[in-house]
Amino acid sequence: MKLLVIVASTRPGRLGRPIADWFTARAVEHGGFEVEVADLAELALPLYDEPAHPMTGKYEHQHTKDWSARVAGADAFVFVMPEYNHSYNAALKNALDYLNREWAYKPVGFLSYGGVSGGLRAVQAIKPVVAALRMIPVVDAVTVPMVKSMMDGEEFRPNDVVESSAKTMLDELVKLAQAFEQVRAAG
């Protein structure tokens, strides 16, 4: 099974990449998935620019076809996401809106970060969107409050609570990905 870790933040100076690197190492150590990272800053998807509705799967642009293949090839996702203005960021919404069927019946975990709330409002805001895409959100998320206090230069060094919550979320993702494997295969 493949886990696609999606780095949502695209802004210069972001903390999302070092957090995603830390989580990716934990996911590889966990062993439940083959792990791949999709960094939205590197993908640089333009604002949705396909003429056909994504539900049709008729993509004209190569960047959409490439994104479709990466998402379709995954069995589960983790969104490494900041909180912006009590919600999730535009780059993540855009990446979700590009596709439709590719997301369906796959579990999604949330690794959110921010100030006092640790990105919890962003997670609550995105749940209706992932539900509309027929994704299965895990209950056990990873929340990183006061994220700057866990940065050591360019490296993310989480506390024990954050560290242990990553394993809990990965365990749940494996269970759900396995449980929905036949549903995904049935199309």
Rank of each mutant, 00 (worst) to 15 (best):
G57N: 03
L111S: 10
V183F: 06
L111R: 02
L96R: 01
Q62T: 14
L133S: 02
A25V: 07
A185W: 00
V108A: 12
E50I: 07
M146Y: 15
S117V: 05
N85R: 01
S112E: 00
R26W: 08
F23N: 07
D21W: 04
K65T: 08
R17M: 13
A27W: 05
A72V: 01
A95C: 02
V161I: 09
I19W: 06
G118H: 00
D152H: 14
D97L: 11
P46E: 11
E155L: 12
H63D: 07
F110G: 07
V139Q: 12
T143Q: 15
E29D: 15
L43R: 15
A74T: 03
D140M: 08
R14D: 10
G57A: 08
E29R: 14
G73Q: 09
M169P: 06
F156K: 07
M146L: 12
P107D: 10
P46C: 09
P18K: 10
L4I: 06
D140A: 11
A132L: 09
S68W: 02
D97M: 08
G187W: 07
E50S: 09
A72R: 15
V116K: 07
F156V: 03
A27G: 14
N159P: 02
L47R: 11
A125H: 13
E36I: 04
S112C: 11
H30I: 05
R14I: 08
P12R: 14
P158V: 02
T143W: 00
P82Q: 01
K148G: 08
S149E: 11
R184N: 06
P82W: 00
A179W: 00
V129Q: 06
V139G: 14
I6F: 05
A95E: 09
S68C: 08
A132K: 10
Q62Y: 01
A132C: 03
Y48V: 11
L43Q: 14
L3D: 06
A141G: 02
K148F: 04
E60T: 07
M1W: 04
I6T: 13
E163C: 01
A186N: 07
E29Y: 04
A125R: 01
A69G: 03
R70Q: 15
V147M: 10
K127D: 05
D97P: 02
